[in-house]
Design a binder for these strands. Structure first.
Lengths: 204, 204
DNA sequence: GTCTATACGTGGATAGAC
DNA sequence: GTCTATCCACGTATAGAC
């Protein structure tokens, strides 16, 4: 993982200060244990064995820390789902599988949903980051849908660009419903949506 | 404490507590002007011309106030879109129209998204309220889809219950994308989704 | 029952010394 | 880079006046 493109306060490539990574994994662990709402910078610092204000040197604000957590999780999940050169259809299948995996990480889903919604506000520090994130995401998926379309796998009238926006939106929205009611079957509902668009069902 | 254990839902039965309504509309106005992030209880109180702690007597917490704002908006929008006895197909059309209307209320969309996501956390005070809200919403829409299905308007394999969850999730998720990129055409994407499920397109 | 005044706790940001 | 120390905003709780 290259931390080359990181935020404003990104360090040199060689710095590799283990502290930053320690903070990220510690914060992740705390969230997985007790949820985002319970997370305070003080607790993170304490769990890291450093002073609260020492965090400031690595992450200028709480929002920045949370955003870094998500960026970090993205890398892991991207590696888990989308390998370059993967056929479009397989990307879609992997996408559905991802939502199945997320069910085991409730608090991380909460974190993700909370921060991406907060970033929707124009004055939020991570607004641009998330905007770019969604552009990249939908473009990637649009490519997958386009690939399926070229091989005649898409039903008439289904536009790859629109389909990409839909699958992303559906995924985000389902997380909200699932948080409110864990019996909501995210993968099944996603698959049903795709099956409405694909000539041949994804199967399982 | 006031009467009984009134949930975050807040009542509409004992409607006229003048001040309560003043607080709600003032808070709404402040949010529409400056967004949710900028809203503090102090500002609300100041704008209402009352002391900050006077808010406590009407809304026990900030979460409760925000939830009441959403409940209030629900009533307006419900009246705007869904009239009882409205044919299922018309409900769906009205639902799409609603998203077109929301575009004019960016900050209220932010409020809605932010609170409903926050309420996803199990320890959030409004968790149960929002869970019930989504159940009511999806059941209403499921009824509409079922009605369309009975008249043969639904494509094979489309389940009314799943379709209801999908349209709600899609709407929520699209709001996130739209906040990050206002060029996202929510109504068009919603309509495209419905047209994939309906035998005859919704048209316009 | 509704308002005011005041104070407390928490949590995030800031400044400067080592 | 990390610390100590401080400050301030905000939400919440308490006591009391009308």
């Amino acid at each position: 993982m290259d931390d080359a493109h990181e935020g404003p306060a990104a360090g040199r490539a060689h710095s590799r200060s283990g502290t930053r990574e320690t903070i990220l994994s510690t914060a992740t662990r705390l969230i997985q244990e007790s949820g985002v709402r319970a997370l305070t910078l003080d607790k993170v610092a304490a769990a890291c064995g450093i002073a609260p204000s020492a965090l400031t040197h690595h992450f200028a604000s709480k929002d920045e820390l949370l955003t870094a957590l998500i960026a970090r999780r993205d890398e892991v999940q991207e590696a888990r789902t989308v390998t370059r050169d993967m056929p479009g259809r397989e990307v879609l299948r992997a996408w559905v599988g991802l939502s199945a995996h997320n069910v085991q990480d409730r608090h991380m889903v909460e974190l993700f949903a909370m921060v991406s919604v907060a970033a929707g506000a124009e004055d939020h520090p991570a607004h641009d980051f998330f905007a770019a994130r969604y552009v990249a995401l939908t473009e990637m998926l649009e490519g997958s849908f386009a690939q399926v379309k070229e091989s005649g796998g898409l039903r008439d009238g289904v536009d790859p660009g629109v389909a990409a926006q839909q699958i992303v939106a559906l995924t985000d929205g389902l997380q909200v419903q699932w948080m409110l009611d864990p019996s909501v079957d995210m993968p099944a509902i996603l698959r049903a949506h795709l099956d409405d668009q694909l000539v041949d069902p994804l199967g399982r």
